[in-house]
């Protein structure tokens, strides 16, 4: 039995004070992952005695465009990401990933902060956010700190958040029009699927030449990371000289270099190669149309 006391935070300050006073606190927002874990008595949901409900903190539900970045409140739901004209205009990669999450019911409750902090290897927002070089802001009564999402993730379902910290914001640097992205995902059915594999690719393309490539598969490794060998192989190359099939196979090799051969490898080797091929083809197509 998982037993806990329920506390509703009325303000961010109240939430941070509470997190500062007790060590055995779990924060709940949309609850779409956590309530399932509590019901199933999943070990991930054990070890807390107090459940801090932050779902009512309206001050963490905003999207603000600044000079060189967009600041997102951690409690934005997937639906609000999809419906935001700012996200649609600047980060279509993120919007297309958010659209694939769960179902309307899940997207109406689940939040960007929850998706990041649950840190599932299959989380759909992690690959695009890593590809976009997102930063996360953590607040506590001790102060605040900001770090890259890549640094924040520490393993499957593990982050570098301290027990008294709450993620309040996600910062995404603006990218110029040279950057084109694509999100791919496969699961057991179209709706409600937890990704068997997903993938975000963001490429700078100038005059047909790729610069600053960012290739981030999800559910391929213990937690989503950039695939440096793949990025190296396409960086500085003309898109006409790149064979998407070959790069797909390279991505699968890189995955196996991290994970070793596992029970799922015969499937994932072929599937990841295919996702990478599709993503590259789609971006190259868009680049040609833009010319």
């Amino acid at each position: 039995m998982i037993d806990y006391e329920f506390i509703k935070a009325r303000s961010l300050k109240e939430a941070l004070d509470f997190l500062g006073n007790y060590e055995d606190v779990k924060a709940i927002a949309g609850g779409t992952d956590l309530i399932v874990d509590i019901r199933k008595e999943n070990v991930r949901a054990k070890g807390f005695k107090r459940l801090l409900d932050i779902s009512g903190l309206k001050e963490l539900e905003f999207i603000e465009k600044e000079r060189d970045r967009v600041v997102l409140g951690a409690l934005l739901t997937h639906t609000s990401l999809i419906e935001s004209p700012i996200i649609e205009q600047h980060f279509p990669l993120l919007a297309s990933a958010a659209k694939t999450i769960g179902s309307p019911q899940i997207r109406n409750r689940g939040t960007i902060g929850g998706n990041i902090n649950n840190a599932s290897p299959a989380a759909d927002l992690l690959p695009p956010l890593i590809a976009l070089k997102a930063q996360v802001k953590l607040c506590s009564v001790r102060g605040e700190r900001t770090m890259s999402l890549e640094e924040f993730l520490a393993g499957p379902y593990k982050t570098n958040r301290q027990s008294d910290e709450l993620m309040t914001e996600v910062h995404i640097p603006l990218v110029n029009e040279d950057y084109l992205g694509n999100f791919q995902k496969i699961g057991r059915r179209k709706a409600m699927n937890i990704a068997r594999l997903n993938l975000a690719i963001l490429l700078g393309i100038n005059d047909g030449t790729i610069f600053d490539p960012r290739v981030v598969p999800g559910a391929a490794t213990a937690y989503p990371i950039r695939f440096g060998k793949v990025e190296e192989a396409i960086s500085g190359k003309d898109i006409k000289d790149i064979d998407p099939v070959e790069i797909g196979e390279l991505a699968s090799e890189e995955m196996i270099s991290f994970t070793g051969v596992r029970w799922s490898t015969p499937y994932k080797r072929v599937a990841l190669a295919s996702l990478v091929k599709r993503a590259l083809e789609s971006i190259f197509q868009e680049a040609k149309v833009d010319e």
């Binding site: 329920f6 509703k8 709940i28 949309g30 609850g31 779409t32 309530i35 399932v36 019901r39 199933k40 409900d53 779902s55 009512g56 639906t79 769960g102 179902s103 309307p104 019911q105 899940i106 109406n108 409750r109 409600m192």
Partner: peptide, 25 residues
């Protein structure tokens, strides 16, 4: 567990799973 949608209700104008929300929230 939020897979089937049979428990869908409308909460403040949005379709949600009533099995994934605590009443206290």
């Amino acid at each position: 567990v939020g897979e089937c949608g049979a428990c869908t209700v409308i909460l403040d104008g949005e379709a949600v799973h009533s099995c994934l929300i605590l009443t206290a929230q």
